[in-house]
Computed example of a mutant assay.
Amino acid sequence: MSESIVFAPLDDGVASVTINRSATRNALSLEVMEALIDTLAEVGRRTDVRAVIVGSAGHVFSSGHDLKEIRGADLEAQQEIFDACSRLMQLIQTIPQPVIAQVQGVATAAGCQLVAACDLAVAAESARFATPGVKIGLFCSTPMVALSRAVPAKQAMRMLLTGDFVSAEDALAFGLVSDVVADDDLETGTADLARKVASASSATVAIGKAAFYEQRELPVAEAYARMSQVMAHNAVGTDAQEGIDAFLSKREPRWQHRG
């Protein structure tokens, strides 16, 4: 595994994936993105991990792409960088485990995109977010994909057109993050949320995560038709029947993590 990424199993089915490039403000270089892709793909194949926290070393979550790589690169090299970024963001939403961003400092450009792409995000109250590419002549077009699906259109466009920072509280109000905690509580607050997510049946959560991203791209009638099928198949599964029986019997469920 690359030294730029640190994988650590925690407990209760939770693992952490840490970007370990504080000297570059955890910039998403091609090497870092490819290492993240490899690590998260491996996480997706593990049955002992039911939730994963994506964080970073140091005082900055991520400053976005490594501009030193982009400066002077030819079209082929540029395409390789942005294709890797797109693969990373899509992978986050296709692995079965919920991915939770743990955000301190600033998350800018592709770093903000990474937050938006995660299923949940916990931000320290001092954290700030921006998509400032417009200020250097490089519009945040790939970050826009994740941002515009997490944040209402007018707020997304304001961030993209001005490059201004938004606070953690504003990010919470917009829907860019799911939780804001005191700076000193960031690690424990994120871990508590991850453990809560991991306490459910991993089979049920995987069904729900995949269904969420599938249905939101469908017209309403088609979404209902498809989700009716998904829920019917879920309902006859091992863990759904166990959970229903446990609820009706007033006992704790004993998950087998099987659909």
Rank of each mutant, 00 (worst) to 15 (best):
D164C: 06
P9D: 12
V17D: 05
V14R: 07
S126V: 03
V115R: 03
A116Q: 09
A235K: 05
M89P: 10
A211P: 00
T238D: 06
M1R: 04
D192L: 00
L160G: 11
V166R: 04
D183T: 10
S62Y: 03
P219I: 08
N26F: 01
L114K: 13
S22G: 00
D66I: 03
N26D: 08
A73I: 14
S56A: 14
A206D: 00
Q78G: 11
E222Q: 14
N20C: 01
D119V: 08
V180F: 12
V54D: 05
Q102R: 14
T238N: 02
F247V: 07
V17P: 02
A203P: 00
R87H: 15
P9H: 13
V115D: 10
E125C: 12
E69K: 11
S228Q: 03
V145P: 09
A246T: 01
A84D: 02
K135R: 14
V151N: 10
E217A: 14
I53R: 09
A116N: 13
A203W: 04
E80I: 14
L176N: 10
K196W: 08
E242C: 00
A156Y: 08
M1G: 07
D184S: 11
P143T: 02
Q102W: 12
T108W: 05
S16R: 11
L91E: 06
D192W: 01
D170T: 13
D245I: 01
A130T: 07
M157Y: 15
Q104W: 07
S16A: 14
R258M: 07
A240I: 01
C118D: 09
I100D: 10
F139G: 14
K209W: 02
V230P: 00
N26T: 01
A153D: 15
T94H: 13
A117P: 05
D192P: 04
E80L: 13
T131I: 12
A23E: 14
V32N: 03
S126Q: 08
A210P: 10
A240N: 02
C118V: 09
S4A: 05
V115C: 05
A194H: 04
I37V: 15
T162L: 10
G64W: 06
D185V: 12
G44M: 09
A130P: 04
V14K: 04
S178H: 08
K209E: 04
L147E: 12
M89W: 15
K250P: 07
Q155V: 09
D66S: 08
V49Y: 01
E214M: 08
P9A: 13
M144A: 15
M33R: 05
S202W: 07
S167F: 03
S16Q: 14
